[in-house]
Amino acid sequence: MKNDISKKETWAWLWILPVIAILSLFYVVPIVKVGLYSFTNASFFGGKFHYTLNTYGFLFSSGTFWIMLKTTLLFVIASVIFQFLLGFSISLALVDGENRKLLGTTFVRTAVLSAWVIPGVVIGIVWKLLLTGASYGILNYYIKVLTGYAIPFLSSPTWALVSIIIANVWRGTAFSMIILYGGLKQVPQELYEAAQIDGASAWKRLIHVTIPQLKQVIFINLALITIYTFNTFDMIMALTGGGPGRATEVLSIYSYDSVFERWALSQGAASAIVLLVINLIIVIFYYRTMKVGENNA
């Protein structure tokens, strides 16, 4: 019997070999290659390159890198907070609406989700049309009619950062909503009924019943939206391109800029590795949270 199982395990390895090969070829090899380039002075311009730690030294000693990292953190923190709060509020409203058998909850869910399925580039272009200060800028047209002034959404450094955060929150709220909505549907109704009998207010039910029950889902949600936000590229590229100046230049844009605009392959690779390390830390945190959740279950 034991022999049969070990034979089956050997065969199982054979069956998953193609998957391992494909994953290695298309995921592991490129990552290793990028990692190796990050320890070189390679450029698309230069011929031969050599291995060096100077690329990381250069990256971490450059003032531009720290400004960009600060911008990235501001963008991520603000986006994650608002995506989570809005997603949570909408999912609570939806579940409550469904409990009260209100009409239109499915429509609301679909409408919010539509923002999530639109490609990032399209979102960037749509928000650009909305926010631009040009004569065809939709939002500024109404603001100008009401106040006589236009807001420099894309041309002032502060407003540009606010603009990419708003666009990203608009895009990412749906994801938080759907994850938390799924979690809320799993919370046993009896807990709410018991709390109500004990005289708990809506706020207390949220703090003492809903949030503790959703703890694991909330952690997963926060981890995933943090990763997604760190990796945001297409939407910002289409909306501001990282400008004005470097006001909206985040890690992914910096990486792209290094490789494709400045042809500095090693620097782009090093900044991509920094992004990878940040994402890995979040993933480790995510798995540890999952494990704690499973052990507590």
């Binding site: 631009t132 200060g133 040009a134 894309l154 041309s155 002032s156 501001t240 391109g241 400008g243 004005p244």
Partner: peptide
Amino acid sequence: PERVDAITAEAQLNQD
């Protein structure tokens, strides 16, 4: 206008 700092291609001026 200050918003020229958001203009990244010549053709973006066409609409204006």
